[in-house]
């Protein structure tokens, strides 16, 4: 302990509880400073007091500044040759790979990494549709209204069924609300028909 102080024996007396380690460092925890600098954020989420679909109204402090909205900008961050996949499409591809894994590789040392299993499980959990092609067809029509691939995938992956939910969950979509609302409403109605009847959402 006394070695840490750096000022001989006195430091041990000054910091019997080991607080010398923290000397000179002020640590604060609040909603503004809570993120590690390494985290890339452009805001800490909207906290307007309205919370989860099931929760009651929050008590967000009125004095707090409204943080900037986090917009989905998939296209800006990905290379051109990347194509977004909906969970239902990914589930189909990954399931196919798992089924044919033995045929694909004769090398017994190749093991399926744990990330594959977790990804497949996740894709299956967020898979509300039995026919990915139909879902893609329905949602592709929204591209004419400048709905991005990323937004299309979020719509499919979350299984949202109303335009209200879509606009609330994706602020980027809300900016195009006027021209999108009608085709989106029609698409969501189509998706509801395609949705697996076994899965009941909140």
């Amino acid at each position: 302990m006394s070695d840490k102080g750096g000022k001989g024996g006195k430091s041990a007396l000054k910091s019997p509880d080991g607080s010398a380690k923290l000397k000179g460092r002020k640590v604060q925890f609040d909603s503004e400073d809570m993120f590690d600098e390494k985290f890339e954020t452009n805001g800490n989420g909207k906290s307007n007091g309205k919370d989860s679909g099931k929760g009651k109204g929050g008590k967000a402090g009125p004095a707090k500044k409204e943080p900037p909205q986090v917009l989905l900008k998939v296209e800006e961050e990905l290379p051109e040759n990347a194509k977004c996949l909906m969970n239902c499409e990914a589930a189909q591809i990954l399931q196919g790979i798992q089924d044919h894994m033995v045929l694909l590789s004769k090398d017994p040392t190749i093991k399926i990494p744990s990330s594959f299993d977790r990804a497949l499980q996740y894709a299956n959990t967020g898979n509300f549709y039995t026919d990915p092609q139909s879902v893609r067809q329905v949602l592709e029509s929204l591209k004419k209204q400048d709905v991005s691939d990323g937004e299309i995938c979020v719509i499919a992956n979350t299984g949202i069924d109303t335009t209200e939910k879509a606009f609330a969950l994706m602020p980027s979509l809300k900016a195009k609300q006027i021209k999108v609302i009608e085709p989106l409403s029609a698409a969501l109605t189509e998706l509801t028909k395609l949705k697996e009847s076994t899965i009941v959402l909140d």
């Binding site: 993120f35 985290f39 954020t41 800490n44 989420g45 909207k46 906290s47 307007n48 309205k50 919370d51 989860s52 679909g53 099931k54 929760g55 929050g58 967000a60 949202i160 939910k165 609330a168 969950l169 959402l201 909140d202």
Partner: peptide, 15 residues
């Protein structure tokens, strides 16, 4: 690693 929020409309427990 990600940081997430459930403090917004239509977020939170689904099951």
């Amino acid at each position: 690693f990600c940081i997430g929020t459930i403090k917004d409309d239509f977020l939170g427990v689904i099951s």
